[in-house]
Write a protein that binds this DNA or RNA. Sequence first.
DNA 1: GGAAGCTAACTGTGATCACAGATTGCGGCA
DNA 2: TGCCGCAATCTGTGATCACAGTTAGCTTCC
Lengths: 233, 233
Amino acid sequence: MLERIPAYTDAMLDEAGTLSDRVYRHLADRLIAGRFAPGDKLSLRAVSEALGLSIMPVREAVSRLAAEGALEVAPKKAVTVPLMRAAQFRDITQVRVEIEGFAAALACKANSPESLARIEAREREFRELSEQPQADLAQAVAANQAFHFAVYRAAGSAELLAIIERLWLRVGPIINLDLRENPERLRLGGAVQAHRACLSAIRENRPDAAREAIAADISGASAFILSRQRLLD
Amino acid sequence: MLERIPAYTDAMLDEAGTLSDRVYRHLADRLIAGRFAPGDKLSLRAVSEALGLSIMPVREAVSRLAAEGALEVAPKKAVTVPLMRAAQFRDITQVRVEIEGFAAALACKANSPESLARIEAREREFRELSEQPQADLAQAVAANQAFHFAVYRAAGSAELLAIIERLWLRVGPIINLDLRENPERLRLGGAVQAHRACLSAIRENRPDAAREAIAADISGASAFILSRQRLLD
DNA sequence: GGAAGCTAACTGTGATCACAGATTGCGGCA
DNA sequence: TGCCGCAATCTGTGATCACAGTTAGCTTCC
């Protein structure tokens, strides 16, 4: 059965594409949003029953997510959300700094009024959320994600966006687990500050500054998580 | 049936992991090596029969490759090797320049005697192959790939390597199709020159130069392919 | 009371069958 | 001779069944 994620039945599927596609999106969204924690187990049969399907579409969806490293499937054993070693997390952080930083710099150059407006809106939403004394963590995670992807989308590169999505698929469970256990980090405002710096860099067309801001945001969160020693090794 | 790739039966599978895994590696290797051309169709049943399996493992393998964009599968239609638009190719090239360039720079910093020796060996093999008047194209493609991945492997980042592999999965069919139609490009020596520059940059610990060399190699090949107008749009 | 061992339930993997939509090629008509 | 249309075949999708290895819980014995 599903561990730590009992409320699975409330989940409905979108209505686009094949059943496999829908299950894939369903699981991927939950992974990025941090609805799963590292080490969580799920079973093909349990998921398929909860969703009212046969296990076939679930199999394909899980298989794809496993190919992307978002899930781990060992033969004859339950599917698990991967645990991550500190070294691996450092590695992925370094890659994220480079790639997401690049996307931010591109977003600067491609700067259009519409995408700038979208980024501003997301920045404001996240800032207002973190200023609340009792912020809803799930909302905050979603708002943070929305801001980042507004920036990355503004870069105008579908390839880059797909790569970044896959990276978030991997780090989603970890970042969320961290924030859930350390809600005070939200109030420290490191993220808010980085977002603001990124926004003004994009406004003023300074690609290097935008890259730096995103890099600082990612590195800051990563350093905090690593300092908490919740990862293997 | 398989178009343009009649000799499918000669292919054997490796012996590791589940059947799905083996089929995946089998198809992925052939995609990277350029054994498929854009637009090629393949059928789950044809592949499974050629490999002597049921269609289940093939389904899963194809499903994973489709998730990575290496294959396209439209419901009720044959699986195809994706055609690529010029704009998309430009996009992917820009991403490759950034990411593979970054990997080359990392390889510089991580510089170990063993990996340097491996890179040198691959550089020599590719150079000698291109100097031959009647070079075997398939061999040359493989040698080029071997050189690049020797560099990327030296970067010491598993995450980066996985991302780059996925990128090559996408561009493999196109690069190979190009080289097959323009074998003279090999003799022009742009690649040989870039490889040599990259190698000495790594030897002399100059990350920016290594990045530049890889970027020049990728951009050069990309510009040539785009100039040939074989892509859509 | 506690630990070891066995059994029953659960795991993913693979094969086979059924189905609906797409494709293709052949036959007939103009 | 050339084109249109129908039918047989091929496509991926999904469900169900069988199987072998894993896991976990219960019983039994010390």
